[in-house]
Design a protein around this nucleic acid. Structure first.
Lengths: 165, 165
DNA sequence: TTGGAATGTCAACAAAGCTGACTTATTGTG
DNA sequence: CACAATAAGTCAGCTTTGTTGACATTCCAA
């Protein structure tokens, strides 16, 4: 029972244990996105809008190019999302002061309100999962996730972490 | 041991810490899917094909309905994927012996070959992440993921785990 | 002043999800 | 047996979110 989560020696990690980790990742990610998805479905928005809102909130004043790099999509794809958010008054795009080719992105009050709703839902689930799993599990969780990232994403993740705290 | 004094420290989980967990989950999932995605992109397949192949391999002889429940998509969506896999000779659909309305799904040799390529890539990354994070991190990782799943997905995940080992 | 960078836009397309309506077998039940 | 329910599959049409490619605009910097 105590070892049912693959805590056995790493030297003997079987394909079966790895596959369980893979499936856990798949099912957990669905839970991870389920709550925001439900909220977004009531509006004309999807996950792409959520991601844009999340990272604009995370780094207010970020440029479009920076957002493109974090999200890893094409500018056409992001632009479509950004355009609707700006039209709907959730995001504001200000011409850069230093470099006026750039656009600095900010959430409006309405944008912040939606961001709060979405991240509240996601944090609530995360908090519950952390509570269920226990404090020692949390650091392990974070360590494995970080080790699973692509190098470039790890860099961006670290940069966000530093800026946030 | 995990629960002795852990409850207290969890009370101090800040929104910032939770957000870091959320972002870690987002960036890690991208890494998690990156390797299979690269392989699939060289063929005319996508993630949906990968998921079908994965779970057919996991539970050979599974029915379409069962697969639908695991994947949580509509039959129209799954059917499109399944049809191409059958046409391409990666999946075999046999009429059920007990109930001839059912179709039992199996990977062909070619299907198994692709499954191996895909899961090898994914397992390699998972193994490396486990190694980097250390053995204690792994059980924590698994515990948090499981706690993050929807109830129904947790049930299906557990059922797969039992059948696999 | 000119090249390149940052941004934005148009058009066309694809993957993968969705709803709704329907058919065809087959099975279980009244 | 008759009929309702179930499993699977199909057609049509729609949405979201990603992709290429081509091109215009604006503006900084050499």
């Amino acid at each position: 029972m105590a070892d049912s989560h693959g805590g056995e020696s790493l030297l003997y990690l079987t394909d079966e244990q790895l596959r369980q980790g893979i499936e856990a990742m798949y099912f957990a990610y669905r839970g991870f996105t389920a709550d925001p998805d439900r909220i977004l479905a009531t509006m004309a928005y999807g996950r792409a809008h959520h991601r844009a809102i999340h990272f604009i909130n995370r780094a207010p004043g970020t440029t479009v190019t920076n957002l493109l790099e974090i999200l890893g999509v094409t500018k056409q794809s992001l632009n479509r999302v950004l355009r609707t958010l700006i039209e709907d008054g959730l995001v504001e795009s200000r011409v850069g002061s230093a470099d006026r080719r750039e656009r600095n992105l900010y959430l409006t009050e309405a944008g912040e309100a939606l961001e709060n709703r979405l991240s509240d839902a996601q944090r609530t689930r995360m908090r519950a999962a952390y509570r269920d799993a226990g404090p020692e599990a949390v650091s392990g969780f974070r360590r494995v996730l970080e080790a699973m990232m692509d190098k470039e994403m790890k860099r961006r993740y670290a940069a966000l972490r530093e800026s946030g705290q």
